[in-house]
Design a binder for these strands. Sequence first.
DNA 1: ACTCCGCAATAGAGCGCGCTAGTAGCGCGT
DNA 2: ACGCGCTACTAGCGCGCTCTATTGCGGAGT
Lengths: 337, 337
Amino acid sequence: MADVAARAGVSRALVSIIFRDQPGASRETRERVLRVADEIGYRPDNAARLLARGRSRTLGVMFTVHQTFHTNLIAGIYPEAERLGYDVLLSAATQSRDEAKAVEALLSHRCEAVILLGPDAEPGYLDALGRRTVAVSVSRRVPQAHVDFVHSAEGKGVRQAMDHLVDLGHHRIVHIDGGQGPGSADRRRAYRAAMRRHGLQAELRVIPGDHTEQSGIEAGELLLGERDSGRPLPTAVLAGNDRCAWGLLMALTRAGIDVPRDMSVIGYDDSHLSHLMPIGLTTVRQDAALMAEHAVRFAVERLENEGLEPREAVVDPKLVVRGTSGPVPEGSSEGSV
Amino acid sequence: MADVAARAGVSRALVSIIFRDQPGASRETRERVLRVADEIGYRPDNAARLLARGRSRTLGVMFTVHQTFHTNLIAGIYPEAERLGYDVLLSAATQSRDEAKAVEALLSHRCEAVILLGPDAEPGYLDALGRRTVAVSVSRRVPQAHVDFVHSAEGKGVRQAMDHLVDLGHHRIVHIDGGQGPGSADRRRAYRAAMRRHGLQAELRVIPGDHTEQSGIEAGELLLGERDSGRPLPTAVLAGNDRCAWGLLMALTRAGIDVPRDMSVIGYDDSHLSHLMPIGLTTVRQDAALMAEHAVRFAVERLENEGLEPREAVVDPKLVVRGTSGPVPEGSSEGSV
DNA sequence: ACTCCGCAATAGAGCGCGCTAGTAGCGCGT
DNA sequence: ACGCGCTACTAGCGCGCTCTATTGCGGAGT
């Protein structure tokens, strides 16, 4: 910076002003300085900037590799952060690198706030983190922790999916749940409520699972095994998320079960794979862009208004009907054991 | 830091020494200072650290959202970087955020080197970047650019896959290529060479595609359409990568083509989805962990030895035979048009 | 008693910036 | 002539840390 100043025949302060796009420099000087800077390849040093400014205007995002929905969120976080004048740094949790480590990396790089995508850490940790810094949890509700919370209205999404299935004549509707996964508890609850509301409590069944393809495959194999020993297949399955639905579809396809003729399957997330399937996956779309937007805003607003308490945003999901849901198979609506 | 020093009754310099784990402080003082720091919640500020040290010991990683193989690489980068004492910062390229922007973000946060996962930017840009800083390209070869290069031996992988297919009796083997995608040119070339080597140049056929599920679906539909107008289906397809293979499988499944009975399909990458399929995907495994390790080492070694020139590492891939490849369908080995 | 040595601890410069307080110069009205 | 407000620019401190050089000090060697 000193070099640029010298070369352009101005003071360092003026160069600083120009690079911050602040008023206080004439048009010509501005152009000259920028030209000189370009010539000698000068680019302002963020670290020094942050240090001097006292604020970093940087948001940290913790995500989990392999969770496809997270990538949708990340894609949505960037533009909103940029709009508000914030930088974004990413840190991944992997098998060998737990969430706490990923978060520490962000914090030590001066992120003023952290956005946690589907955090899996224990409530105590999240609460402590939320008191040490501004934190936002996306998808996972942790009522007792001092963090903002953004999620989609799981209940509404599940209800739409269930209404859709019942409209199509389905009664024997099974839910593969997401175990400890974000949102799973709400989805499970909403499934139960919907079954009861439709007078189907007798058919209510939750198969434990998680948010992976593997769990869909296992649930599928479980159901197929039961069929072989006489128990009828459900006519419809509400999966814990899209990945799980994928796995289930794989298992069914392999066994020659035609979806949606023999069975309907509904996912959750509308990850980018859903519409690529030959018969697109009927799923509940979580508006990732909108969720990302809320998360960024919450973080920024709390950074810029000291006293603000953590808030909660609920984004309405929307059932996207594609090819994996259809009318109930003939003759199987009334428990054709 | 000054607070800690005051409370512990020592100078700031000593606190600094202690937090850097350097010799020059007695055992007792060390413990006392650490205790005090813990009490008032002090944690060293990385930005200031980097600034003062002149070196950040931070590697930047640019990746593309939705490219599943990248997540495997990321998972491998972390441990190796940690082992060598480096921090890692991630920056994603998305639809609305091009690679240059992602890289700028890393650089302005003082990353000393950038690791580019499957970069898609033009050679001129990469070369300029490689001269401005230490850069490593993973998967994409850009001979004219001043960057390290890590890739798997595409030729060997393709050759193994082709030999496998030919061993199974296949002649009519089609390749869906990866367009401009990383490694595609090499894979295409190796496919052509293998066909010739096996005396199958008459059957040689490359269908243009890219590294997405969509391109697999489209290629599948193309082949199915041709079948309907009399042209026989290939007995085997070598896809550009796993995502493409997925798409193809979807299209085939939908049309009632049984894999591997009617057609064999081989992917490339061994992304984490491949083994989850009902009949696992036969694919060429790129050793992501090893590639990540090389990338990190290259970057670090060039950072720590000024004069070093960019190098190239070739990691041997390995054919993983799963369920999507099988013997050639009866009666179709000799071009049964 | 003297130096020499090694260890614990410190003083203070400086990393590359941002920012506050200020100055110089100019046209304006009175 | 004076002060006033405005633009264009500058001096210099300080952000939180690292690092080199230096000091104080107790014990071993002569």
